[in-house]
Computed example of a mutant assay.
Amino acid sequence: MIKGVSKLPIVVLVVILILVGAAAYSLMYLVAPTQTPTATKATVMGRLVAFVWEDFTVPEVFNPLTEKYPTLTVENSIFTSQPEMFAKLKGGFKADIVSPCIDFLPRLIEQDLLQPINTVKLSNWENLFKSIREYPGVWKEGKLYMVPTAFGLQAGVTYRKDKVPSITKWVDVFNPAYKNRVLILNDARIGIVMAAWALNYEDPWSLTGQDLQRIKEFYREHRDVILKFYESDIEARELLASGDAWIIAGSGPAQSYWLKSEGIEAEFTLPEGKGIGWLCGLSILKTSGNIEAAHLYIDYFISEGPQYYYAYEWLYGPTNEQAFKKLPQEKIAESGIVGPETLTEVLPLIDPPNLDEWLQVWEEIIAG
């Protein structure tokens, strides 16, 4: 869910018709969700605008939904970054559904852009992990504002084992021996937190202005090791595959899984057990004109079929407990997919109170 280079939103109008020749994978896992909200199924119709990551529009998952509800027209408007999404909604863009992550959810609530979700209308709600259903960040004043659909780790380190002996501490990433071999994720929050860990700060979200200046100086002193501040996961792993880079700082476990599939010995680690967890999901916008369909849409994406697909093919942590249990153990071991308990063991991705100061300092770090 954490994306790379921003692009202009792409609007794809999908008129839902009964399709034939669906892929075998889709038929096996997606056509028949475990439970169906029968009352909603009988009445759902009309138009639904989903303002979402591209993930929610892939044919393997989307086509079975269109087959199941032929009287519903879904218009997918795709965003490629959360700032882009937030700016467009603040600018007056109207939709029924949006797919935020936990760090941007408070902004949407504060701007009064969301309406509460009724779990009674979600037949798969009880199939989610209990810790996911009760995750504090998705609730406010007893009302649910986001149904989690995926989670995982971020701000870890992926490195080539044939080039780097080991990474056990965050300061190891900045070893002078790795001159021009380190990729740092171009994200102010994650980039500053990683340097804070290297400097042994215990509570990175509470950094003062003086602390931020110290981190800027730390980056200046270790600039020689940085090949690039990267934005695209694809670009980062290709640079590691080519041997131009040896270390990706700010990655999730999927990078090492991909590299291993290409025959490259790579390792993902959370130095000193420190990393950042992400949690993303679906919310209903106040501008929704089709509340029943909005709930059905959410219910479908937390059902077992789509959840299994995203876990097996995209390596996202599934919020549906039954989907998680069906994953082959070897897949979990190879890919680094984690259970939801990990979210309580790592730092949550949030906005620090002095975010504007963080952004300014990060711009200065990037500029060198």
Rank of each mutant, 00 (worst) to 15 (best):
I226Y: 02
H295L: 09
L27F: 00
Q360S: 15
S99N: 15
A245G: 13
C280M: 08
N63V: 11
L113W: 05
L282C: 05
I350A: 14
K331N: 12
S256K: 11
F268G: 12
G275P: 13
I337C: 03
K216D: 04
L315W: 12
E292F: 07
A188P: 09
D162S: 12
G4W: 06
I132H: 00
G243P: 08
I167V: 12
E217P: 00
N200A: 05
T119E: 14
N180T: 08
A95I: 12
N200L: 02
Y230P: 09
L122V: 11
E75S: 03
I167T: 12
K121H: 11
C101Y: 03
V58R: 11
W258T: 13
E231P: 02
F151A: 15
W358I: 15
A155Y: 01
L227F: 03
A39S: 03
K88N: 06
I192Y: 06
E330R: 01
I215Y: 00
K260D: 04
L153M: 14
K274S: 15
Y178I: 04
I332Y: 01
I302N: 03
A177V: 15
L27M: 12
G368Y: 00
T38G: 04
K121Q: 14
P106F: 07
S335F: 05
G21S: 05
P353L: 13
G250T: 10
E67Y: 03
L296E: 07
V20H: 02
L89M: 10
W139P: 02
T36Y: 04
E334M: 07
I284M: 03
I102V: 15
H222F: 01
S303W: 11
Y257E: 13
D224C: 04
T71D: 12
P204T: 03
T36V: 14
I226R: 01
I365P: 02
T119G: 05
L355N: 13
G289V: 09
D55A: 15
P353A: 15
Y219K: 01
C101F: 10
I215S: 09
L212R: 00
W246M: 09
S288K: 14
F62C: 08
S251D: 15
P59R: 10
L113F: 05
E341D: 02
R237Y: 14
P136L: 02
P70Q: 11
F218C: 00
W170C: 12
F62Q: 11
Y178W: 12
L48F: 01
I2H: 13
V11W: 00
L227D: 04
L13N: 03
L212W: 01
I109H: 08
T38I: 09
T66P: 05
D351N: 15
I10E: 07
